[in-house]
């Protein structure tokens, strides 16, 4: 570990790539469209970007843990939807349309708990019953897209909730969840790279047999990470809701692809929690930039700007190819008798 991995060429190139994208974007915006950068990059912009990045970063941390251990949890989007909806529903049950901050916090806890229970079933399907990880993950998304708005409609008579409440800001006009996420990211990094369990997670994804012959139960490691990923995605959804203050269940729901972005974020961050969080921040900023574009009066390419991360992932994946994914992702592991 040490500095070698922190400053590896691959990482430097990735960070460089991200920086280049940002600078190019800035140059594009300020030169071609003749806009003053200072009107775009305001303090509010930074605050809101961080807020936007928070749920993406949380879900990405969860997803990268699962994938590091060899299970591709493609259902992050679905678990985020469940998380956001459960938080809204719990809040409404507890405090009607004007829940207190305490009830909001409780609702986030409940949402995480429910996600854990759901993921437990998902993990059993994936690990014990060797379900196809891609298809099962997609299924979670479909199920969430169906049942969350369905239940919303039975509760509120409409797919979206009435206005509930959003989380009170802490210092610097910043959401407490932003600070919480910073802690989670740091802890996730330490856990993955500095504890024995982190070693096991990495080994389970790269060479499960080696871990098995070292006397560690591979599937137990994988259960733990998958359930963790569900919990984080559920929490991410709840945080999204806590920031927004109401549940939107139309279209692709209020989560609207953020779970997928989370996957992109950790791929982009090369499976490193800090890299993933940085990528999440990049995406949060891109998201906010669109809003800023509109307020400043640039209409055109907002939607195209949002596509940059996807293009970047494809390029990164092609250029660095197979060295990036843990080599045993997607394969069920069975011990020899």
């Amino acid at each position: 570990m040490r500095t070698t991995t922190l400053l590896s060429p691959k990482r430097l190139r990735l960070v460089g790539l991200a920086a280049v994208i940002l600078v190019a974007l800035g140059a594009f915006v300020s030169i071609v469209l003749d806009v003053q950068v200072e009107r775009l990059i305001t303090r509010g912009f930074v605050t809101r970007s961080l807020e936007m990045a928070t749920p993406i970063a949380l879900a990405a941390i969860g997803g990268l843990y699962a994938e590091k251990s060899g299970v591709f949890n493609i259902g992050l989007e679905g678990f985020m939807i469940f998380g956001a909806f459960t938080a809204a529903a719990t809040m409404f049950m507890l405090g009607g349309t004007s829940p207190t901050q305490g009830q909001l916090w409780l609702a986030m806890g409940v949402a995480t708990l429910i996600s854990i229970i759901l993921t437990l079933g998902f993990a059993v399907l994936l690990i014990r019953y060797k379900a196809d990880q891609i298809v099962a993950g997609l299924a979670i998304w479909f199920i969430a897209l169906g049942f969350a708005p369905f239940t919303a409609a039975t509760i509120w008579g409409s797919r979206s909730s009435p206005g509930l409440t959003s989380i009170n800001n802490l210092a610097f006009g910043q959401s407490p969840m932003v600070f919480f996420t910073v802690i989670v990211v740091a802890a996730a990094w330490v856990f993955l790279y500095r504890t024995r369990y982190g070693y096991w997670i990495q080994a389970a994804g790269e060479n499960p047999k080696a871990l098995d012959t070292a006397g560690v139960d591979v599937n137990r490691v994988r259960y733990a990470t998958v359930i963790f990923s569900g919990a984080m995605a559920g929490l991410a959804g709840a945080v999204l809701l806590a920031h927004a203050g109401n549940w939107v269940g139309t279209g692709d729901t209020m989560v609207d692809g953020r779970g997928w972005i989370a996957i992109v974020a950790y791929l982009f961050g090369n499976y490193n929690p800090i890299g993933a969080a940085a990528a999440a921040l990049l995406f949060g900023a891109l998201d906010m930039l669109n809003v800023q574009f509109q307020t400043v009066g640039i209409e055109a390419s907002a939607r195209l700007v949002n596509l940059l991360p996807y293009v970047a992932v494809i390029i990164v994946l092609t250029v660095w190819g197979k060295t990036r994914m843990p080599s045993k992702v997607g394969e069920a592991y069975e011990t020899e008798e």
Binding site: T195, R196, Y199, W200, Q202, A203, L211, T213, S327
Partner: peptide, 25 residues
Amino acid sequence: FQLIPPMTVLQNIVLGHEPTERGLV
């Protein structure tokens, strides 16, 4: 070989038998 290519030599050697101190390896 039962090795994990992206992990360091040290991590590979201690895998499953890591000495720990206050939770950290």
